[in-house]
Design a protein around this nucleic acid. Structure first.
Length: 717
DNA sequence: CCGTACAATGTTTTT
DNA sequence: CATTGTACGG
């Protein structure tokens, strides 16, 4: 009780009201940077302080990482253990519950989870077996099918409506596609498979049909908190409705202007529907921004004011001072990359940690050129978004082995595994699977070996029948055994880029050590897919720079933010141009990107860009840029270091940065033993000169390596 | 029936 | 431009 004063007094009145409203439905509309996370953390702490056991709290967030961080922060706040709080995503909650209660609707506890590509593979399989891929050349492809299927569920539209609006060329196949979807559902149920959508759907079905489960949930989770509510869909809204039906103690937090998951069925209107589901809802708005400076916020407010829909709030800040956002229009992407890297090095010299700087972009591939430049200049970085480790073929192979160990009826994974073996193609694989369906292993062993003379098949089946996942063997031991078998096939299949791929696997081997059950390992990989760079970069000696898609940057903030490729067709994306709603979402995406910045914001918009199909073309600046008043940003010119010594000339007279306007230090002018002065680190002695780099022992900071190109050092006599 | 060599195709964001 | 489908030879 004594401690409570401290954290409650740190809150503004609105935040405090949200924290102190413990019972009943509560909707918090929280603008970007308005202390949303802080409010959630404090409320969680407050609940516990009022005597609520942590295990009665359910915290739903957008990523599991976010939940973990909040629980950590609450623990620190009260110096108590909050680890019994159940925290995670909707999908992970549903997954856990279905492992426990799935039997009610005919699912065994060891059902298999399908990721996106698994689902696509299944569509392909069914497409072939229904004879839909034979002569009709224009029948939709597997990824289109999976996409359509998911949309019918998440956006609650009929297949016909969706086809009409998005794929009119496939309308003629409506009956075939419908039949395919029915088959897809049947197949999943028969083989104990669930895709991502099934997790929500099936759990909702149980909640709807079993009042006793609702009661049980009410007792188990007496307080529910949901973060990022603007990015939930109707299905998730309904899950909340049932989970909280007995007590109504549910708080949701969201920002309608930051809704960026429409393609996944999220609708910002969900926020406004919340009071309809829970008529007693109390609404609180958080409008004070604690993150960004006024110039950044001004830009953000204009972006959202330009949108067609009226949003609920205008942000204000007390951080009045600050540099205007900078726009740089490079001649091409190469020049953009150089500018960004130069600026980053400059910031680092000023003492900003690389991990406090982020480069954001609409699509993962937009950063390729920059990544090359960063590697060349030796700047460590991690990238979020884009290709997931799980999506690479070799990881999927290993996972397929694990999946059939856990669920022998997962014939989709059996199919993948069998096709890896030399001498086994689609037909033989199909025959083997038919045999397995009639008669399980090990009884059918000899019959199956009779179908193919493949040595690899024989070796695998022998190994397979000896592995016992639920008994004494650890996940790591099992993975080792599989690797022992798989390695020769791996070398044969991926002979060209063996070395690149084997690196990923090493990461996987070290990750598996943390798990005590194989089941948990596999579902975790599917529910929170690992980023490729998350496994590679353990040995970095410096906090790395962040590269991220805007979607993956949600909820985070940095000292400086760069936004890449503000070009029509890239941002806004080509696919959003036809449809106003999609375009509006792109605008919100830009808003999200801008509001990630605390102090400095750089907007990049190259004049020429590589567009798929037509090579290098002139780029049209993004409409999001052209609709901004010029007074809100500074446009700069820039010459790359090769052409001249690194030099920026301000276009307008009050350009924020004086750094480039002074002459730069020349490489030759320093020797060991010189005394020098740095504008931010103060005085120091030169210890070593290494080409373009110099090592200086600063009085304030100790020995530091500087890049002469980007530093202005003054020699003292 | 398998594996490979060649042609075509559309190319975002994620649990 | 890299993945995905098709044609053909072994």
């Amino acid at each position: 009780m004594r401690e409570s004063k401290n954290y409650l007094q740190d809150l503004n009145p609105a935040q405090r009201e949200a924290v102190e409203t413990l019972y009943g439905p509560l909707l918090v509309i929280a603008g970007a940077g308005s202390g949303k996370t802080k409010t959630l953390v404090c409320r969680m702490a407050h609940l516990v302080e009022k005597g609520i056991p942590p295990e009665k709290i359910l915290l739903l967030t957008f990523t599991r990482r976010a939940a973990k961080e909040m629980i950590e922060r609450a623990s620190l706040l009260l110096k108590r253990d909050f680890h019994k709080v159940t925290g995670g995503t909707f999908h992970s909650l549903c997954h856990t519950m279905l492992r426990q209660y799935g039997t009610l609707i005919g699912y065994s506890p060891n059902f298999t989870l399908l990721d996106r590509t698994d689902a696509e593979d299944l569509f392909n399989l069914l497409k072939t077996s229904l004879g839909l891929s034979d002569n009709k050349k224009r029948f939709p492809k597997k990824d289109t099918l999976a996409n359509l299927y998911s949309k019918t569920l998440n956006q609650e539209k009929s297949l016909e409506e969706l086809l009409d609006s998005e794929y009119p060329q496939f309308l003629e196949f409506l009956p075939e596609i419908q039949r395919l979807f029915v088959e897809y559902k049947i197949y999943k149920k028969e083989h104990q498979l669930m895709d991502y959508d099934d997790l929500l759907l099936n759990w909702l079905e149980i909640l709807k049909n079993y009042p006793q489960i609702r009661d049980e949930m009410g007792k188990r989770f007496h307080f529910i908190m949901v973060d990022e509510y603007q990015d939930t869909n109707t299905l998730q809204g309904e899950i909340i409705k049932y989970m909280a039906s007995t007590h109504q103690n549910v708080m949701v937090v969201g920002d309608d202007s930051q809704s960026i998951y429409r393609f996944r069925g999220a609708n910002y209107r969900n926020i406004f529907d919340f009071p309809k589901i829970f008529p007693q809802t109390k609404i609180i708005k958080l409008e004070q921004n604690y993150r960004s400076t006024q110039p950044i916020l001004d830009l953000a407010n204009v972006i959202i004011a330009n949108s067609k829909i009226k949003y609920t709030k205008t942000l204000f800040t007390l951080k009045k001072e600050g540099a205007k956002p900078v726009l740089f229009r490079a001649k091409d992407e190469a020049e953009t990359s150089k500018f960004v890297v130069d600026k980053i090095l400059e910031l680092r010299e000023k003492g900003i940690k690389l991990s406090q700087i982020a480069v954001l972009f609409r699509s993962a591939y937009h950063s390729y050129e920059l990544e090359v430049e960063l590697a060349k200049r030796g700047i460590p970085f991690v990238k979020y978004g884009g290709l997931k480790l799980l999506e690479s073929a070799h990881i999927k192979d290993l996972l397929a082995f694990l999946k059939i160990i856990l669920n022998p009826r997962d014939f989709l994974s059996w199919n993948r595994v069998l096709l890896l073996m030399e001498g086994i193609g689609p037909r033989t694989a199909e025959k083997i699977i038919q045999t397995l369906k009639r008669e399980a292993l090990p009884t059918s062993l000899n019959r199956i070996l009779g179908l193919s003379p493949s040595h690899e098949l024989k070796r695998w089946l022998e190994l397979y029948t000896t592995i016992k996942p639920y008994e004494e063997e650890s996940p790591s031991e099992i993975l080792q055994k599989i690797w022992y078998f798989y390695e020769p096939l791996f070398q044969r299949i991926y002979s060209e880029d063996y070395h690149r791929r084997v690196k990923d696997l090493e990461g996987l081997f070290s990750l598996v050590l943390k798990y005590k059950s194989l089941d948990e390992f596999v579902s975790d990989l599917l529910l929170e897919p690992l980023e490729i760079t998350e496994l590679e970069g353990e040995t970095l000696d410096e906090d790395p720079l962040i590269l991220s898609t805007i979607h993956s940057a949600k909820g985070l903030e940095w000292h400086t933010v760069f936004i890449l490729s503000l070009i029509e067709g890239r941002f806004p994306s080509l696919y959003s141009l036809k449809n106003t709603d999609d375009l509006e979402e792109e605008r919100r995406l830009f808003y999200v990107a801008v509001t990630r910045a605390r102090e400095k914001l750089f907007l990049l918009s190259p004049l020429m860009v590589y567009l798929p199909g037509e090579g290098k073309t002139f780029a049209k600046p993004s409409r999001f840029l052209t609709e901004l008043p010029k007074t809100l940003y500074e446009e700069v010119n820039y010459t790359t270091p090769e052409e001249k010594s690194s030099h920026i000339k301000p276009v307008t007279e009050n350009y924020m940065n004086t750094h480039y306007s002074t002459e730069l230090s020349s490489t030759s002018s320093f020797k060991i033993g010189d005394f020098v002065k740095h504008p931010h680190f103060g005085e120091g002695e030169v210890l070593e000169v290494m080409g373009e780099k110099i090592k200086v022992n600063f009085i304030s900071k100790g020995p530091t390596i500087l890049h002469l190109k980007y530093t202005q050092l003054e020699r003292l006599l």
